[in-house]
Design a protein around this nucleic acid. Structure first.
Lengths: 345, 345
DNA sequence: TTGTAAGCGTTATCAT
DNA sequence: ATGATAACGCTTACAA
């Protein structure tokens, strides 16, 4: 491995060309494989590149070629365990294609998101992958007119260079709720996510559908709203418990919400799953290590990231990419148990 | 002939200049506040900028000025809860200074790290913040010769434009171990992190020092090595439990390791803290919601990120920035309890 | 195959 | 104060 040379003098294409006794276009061609070049010149150039430890200036390259080989990625929270998985998938797949990600955060704030999207444009990214968010759909459509967009977790009206990827939230919620019913639970509480958030809404719909199909009544008093984070799960669970409502199972809108709910129960010495069953949604890596390990609906977060990055590379190649809904899978671990009548609250 | 839905024509400085009836230098001056310009021209330019929705091209700007206002950030894992906090701190502080982060991952792999570091150079970043890592110190020193570097969590020999930030790992480990001893524990196991990792080594030293100061013998059989992740904690704890060694408390080298150890105990119906006390290190956000909430050593991860970004902006202003060791704080939550003789294994 | 030269969109150095 | 004009480092017709 070579080390960066001490002197800060910049080595340019021209310098390499001079050193190798060829023109700069020839060097450029060799570096980019743009055209065939005679073997001796090729060797001479490679030798000079080595000797001077030459590194092409990406800025200049991009300015001249009009392409940056960079894909903007608008996440919401750079430290979130959920978005982190998406980012990792995107990063890995992009790396395999020779593209570089440029990560920015929108903080679940439409204005921030829009500002970041503009920023990405000024950075001349070749395309943008958007993870959730609240930014105006019309703005996004106009945006997709300037640069290809892959949208994760948010269904948008189809457009030529705008592809949407997601999972079947409704089905996942339906499956896990149905499973709870199979275990004998009749009164199942639900801690929802943000109102207006599509994932949250779809999961609620799946939950209600499962109840209905089982001939169970939907009970408004069994619904609380969280914020997709632990804090919201904790508070919502407390409210549920304080309300005096009767239930033997809880469906949390996502795993983080479930963690919070779990703590609320721990505080009151309510055993999981002996007293109350608990399920989440997402299957975050941490859910494997929660106490007890969480029963949840697995969505292939990392893989979706990879698919998103792959969709982007296709878009950049000019291909047409269809929208895609990926399947989810019920993962039964240890927070669910058969209802024991006596244990019901 | 113009395509109705073709790519939007690019608005350039020159176009704005023409529209405003001034030279492009004047526009540039107004945009950058580089010099004073008459009010009427100022207004004319601003109007044109508005009308054409002009956005300066960062690439061209950087190429011409030699500065990108971009700071490379080499993390290890984009989805790690620990690094995530660092990144968030860096992102927030950088945003406040008008700098943009460029995140890349090294995956705890010296070769990857070096490749990414080279990549950052190629992207002409103004400076680089490195989070941990295994890359050769000599390489880093040479690197810091080309561009200012802020290193997090890894002590390096001082250099003019290389500043190292960290926490007092030894002290934190000492404090938490001492607290365990105060609670009556005499046989305290330790699940270490990676060998050769400075954090891991320092924490081990603090642990040993605490034992020694309390007149307790260091017992090799009470030491296992994890990998700073849940998986390693689980395996290490299993080995500890299988070894037949006697102990009533466990000091895990970091919180993630503690989560894994926690699961190992849950599987064997060992109660925490009733049967065995457990402590971690870091105080990840998730530790507040683990079951039970984890006693740990808090290091201000997010704040360190901010300090790192601040150090970088100072470096970029040409200031001299001293190395800094930040204090840690013992956070007693619910995984620690007084030793009850009968409960000792 | 190879070289020449005209950009790419800004900033910066000169004069004026 | 303002405007030419030369960089910045590279790609890419267009020639040869």
């Amino acid at each position: 491995m070579k080390k960066p040379s001490g002197p800060p003098e910049t080595v340019t294409l021209a310098k390499i060309a001079r050193a190798a006794g060829v023109s700069s276009s020839t060097v450029s061609r060799i570096l980019n494989g743009t055209a065939r070049v005679s073997a001796d010149k090729q060797r001479a150039v490679e030798e000079a590149v080595q000797r001077y430890n030459y590194r092409p200036n990406v800025l200049a390259r991009s300015l001249a070629s009009g392409r940056t080989h960079t894909v903007g990625v608008l996440t919401q929270d750079i430290s979130s365990p959920f978005y982190g998985e998406w980012l990792r998938g995107i990063e890995d797949e992009l790396a395999a294609t020779g593209l570089s990600p440029l990560f920015v955060s929108g903080h679940w704030n439409a204005a921030d998101e829009q500002r970041q999207l503009e920023h990405l444009l000024t950075r001349c990214v070749d395309g943008v992958i958007v993870l959730h968010g609240l930014v105006d759909p019309d703005y996004l459509r106009a945006y997709a007119d300037r640069v290809p967009v892959v949208m994760l977790g948010r269904p948008l009206e189809p457009m030529p260079r705008l592809v949407c990827l997601g999972v079947d939230n409704r089905q996942g919620a339906y499956d896990v709720t149905t499973r709870l019913i199979e275990l004998g639970h009749r009164r199942i509480a639900h801690i929802a996510g943000h109102a207006l958030q599509p994932d949250s809404e779809q999961r609620m719909i799946g939950y209600r559908q499962a109840l209905e199909d089982a001939g169970l009544a939907f009970d408004e008093t069994l619904i609380e709203r969280g914020n997709f984070e632990e804090s919201g799960g904790l508070v919502a669970m407390d409210r549920l418990l304080d309300s005096g409502a009767t239930f033997s199972a809880v469906f949390a809108a996502n795993d983080q919400t479930a963690y919070g709910a779990r703590l609320a129960m721990y505080r009151r010495h309510i055993r999981v799953p002996d007293d109350i069953s608990l399920v989440g949604f997402d299957d975050l890596p941490a859910s494997l290590y929660s106490t007890p390990p969480l029963t949840t609906v697995r969505q292939p977060i990392y893989d979706i990231g990879r698919v998103a990055a792959d969709a982007m590379t296709r878009l950049l190649r000019g291909e047409t990419v269809p929208n895609q809904i990926m399947p989810v899978e019920l993962i039964e671990r240890e927070t669910t148990a058969k209802l024991v009548e006596a244990a019901s609250l």
